[in-house]
Amino acid sequence: MARLGIAGGMIVALAVPYLIRSDFWLGFLITVLLFAAMGMAWNVLGGYAGQFSFGHAAFFGTGAYASAILHIGFGLNPWLGLAAAAVAGGLVGLVIGTLSFRYGLRGSYFALITLAFAEVLRILANTAEFTGGGVGLYVPLKVGVANLQFESKLGYYYVALGFTVLSLGVGWALERSRLGARLMAIRENEDAARALGVDTFMCKLQAIVISGALTGLGGAFYTQYYLYIDPGIAYGPGVSVEILLVPIIGGLGTVFGPLLGSAVLHGAGELARRLVGDAPGLSLIFYGALLVIMVRFLPEGLMGLVWRLSRRRERAANA
């Protein structure tokens, strides 16, 4: 049943660009997919392992800059740039993870340290020469599949879809692995996990590296999609918040939560823009309000709501 649903969903996802032929809506779907994939990346660390990061921009920005700099400065093919961005994101994860988990930072302290890392990187990117400083970097326009630049949004849509499938696939595999079981144990009770032979430091480190690598990949995709990156976009708190909202809305520690969350978040965001218009900073207010509502009324996210409703229906059917 679930497999049938996934197969059906895939067919629809592949066919969608031929059904809706609107550049605007295709762009909307690309954003949804990109943030679904990065939301799952955050979910690996935040949802499964329970380590809430408020600074995933550190990985996103590093991936974005890594592919841009390697392409502009060293002529690296952008497809290879994706891999390089994943490696760069994973390395940043390794550094942040080693420093914070080694010293036992948890909960809000971990959230703050990740936020601080992202801010430090933003300031560095603003002042450094090779990142183009505050002006940012422009990726030269050279349209071609080999160059990971497409004439229409269609190509970007399929790349984003592939990224989302990869990311959700990682989550799916994690749920069925020893590492996943250990991460959930750490989330629920770290001391009990240690008593049962779980090397909590190594497990959390693996989680943050996987999370960082996938988010870095998202950053590289962003660079190729917009062909421009600056410190505010790459390392700003906006990206961090958007990435963490996606799984919180959709459902922490679930495979399809991020996809659902991203669709709802960006759908509601688009609606708000149409109703109120687009003023700078408005989206952050909107995100903040949404976060408060979710944490207060639906801490298990929309997937939790779906699960509860289906249970109720089951019980009603049994009665």
Partner: peptide
């Protein structure tokens, strides 16, 4: 391996 006096389930 040890158990805890105050039980520590993965709730």
């Amino acid at each position: 391996v040890r158990t805890f006096q105050v039980v520590q389930p993965f709730g």
